[in-house]
Design a protein around this nucleic acid. Structure first.
Lengths: 222, 222
DNA sequence: CCAAAAGTGTTGCTACTACACCCATGG
DNA sequence: CCATGGGTGTAGTAGCAACACTTTTGG
């Protein structure tokens, strides 16, 4: 059985791959896993694998994340299904791709697993299979969702400053934003709640910390 | 082999289902096929079927349409992949759903096939499997794409009046639009070209016919 | 007192909404 | 000449972009 999966297989297989985003020190990052087997040995790849016989697609995607990182309960959304005939040299594999978001404070490096790492999306290594294409599509989707939803809040820790949030937006959009316009817009959405805490971070005025009013909820507008 | 597919199968199968839209006499319609076998015998269903071993997903979806209607070269886009565990009572079937658009003048009824018919989306019969859910999602996607793309032009014949186009928008959005605002917006997109022909349709002023400047091209804006 | 980031308002422009009348034709 | 749908402009508004200075703190 194992033998058969290493060989070129005859049936069409179905798997899932997940683009797992976080923001680490103000950089958008993706979780990658270094392969230790052919094909693409030593290449980095997305977490993924076969979908179980009695498992929904979402559940499979979550299982991939939990298996590699232990992280659960994240925001997860189906991205696209990739069905290129030659995307896996072992045979036909159709992959239902997802993307997921997790707050930086829940996304530690795992020191004992140097083969599982967060990589800055601006400096990705060469990826296995068609995973570069999958990451590119996930980035576009995420960027376009910023415009009409509160999805970016899923990348924030429990408490954060507006400047930190702005940095996340800028990182995803790849452009700088005007501070006053940004703050007006975000505060106007009614999704943020100021706490009475301040964040002191250096020799300058401390920043107010905000909290998400309805954590876990992504609001769509317009 | 055929026997095996009629029985409850063990492996996960992968198929595609296509929501094929057109507009017939000012109503948004979907192509449905009446099943003649269990499960869901006599229910209406979407055109669909298994994906070939050496066939891309898009190609499979196009093949389904061509097989049932002979129509080719239509606008086609992947919608979502449905993987509910119990969506097919025969066993696990994951379906990559697509939607497609065709102009009314290319979408005739096939009189000798009463089991293949265009149905108004506002008056659908009960559908097999989870096909009602798939149609609902396709409608939402189509409606939201109207706002920021020229996708609706894919439903128009070669030449059409602005009033006909407006009727298509209203049908998809499910609301009435202001004539002057609509015309200003559409003409401002630069995708339409007035012809020098007029359409005479009754005892009133004839309407100018327009043509799509770049047929087959769907422009995204904003 | 200096450096550094936090915080705050106004103005112009653009894009959308709402709205009513004349035009060309067929019968 | 009447009924029918085709065709046109304007005024108000709301939301977005551009833009610079004051505040608070740590060193």
């Amino acid at each position: 059985m194992i033998q058969q999966r290493e060989e070129r297989h005859v049936l069409t297989e179905i798997s899932t791959d997940v683009v797992f985003f976080t923001v680490r020190n103000e950089r958008l990052c993706v979780l990658l896993i270094q392969r230790d087997k052919e094909p693409f040995a030593n290449y980095w790849s997305l977490p993924g694998g076969r979908i179980g016989r009695e498992e929904t697609l979402d559940a499979a995607a979550r299982r991939m994340l939990a298996a590699k990182t232990g992280i659960t309960g994240v925001y997860l959304e189906q991205l696209y299904t990739f069905g290129g005939i030659e995307r896996d040299p072992r045979g036909r594999v159709i992959s239902v791709a997802y993307y997921a978001l997790v707050a930086a404070d829940r996304a530690p490096l795992i020191p004992e697993r140097p083969d599982i790492r967060w990589h800055e999306v601006e400096a990705l290594p060469e990826l296995a299979f068609d995973h570069a294409e999958i990451v590119a599509m996930a980035r576009r989707r995420l960027a376009s969702k910023l415009e009409y939803s509160t999805i970016a809040l899923q990348l924030m820790p429990e408490k954060f400053t507006l400047s930190e949030l702005q940095a996340v937006y800028e990182q995803i959009l790849g452009e700088e934003l005007d501070k006053r316009n940004f703050r007006r817009r975000l505060q106007g959405l009614g999704c943020l709640e100021p706490t009475d805490e301040l964040h002191r971070a250096g020799k300058h005025r401390p920043a107010r910390l905000y909290r998400i009013k309805r954590p876990g909820r992504v609001e769509i507008f317009k």
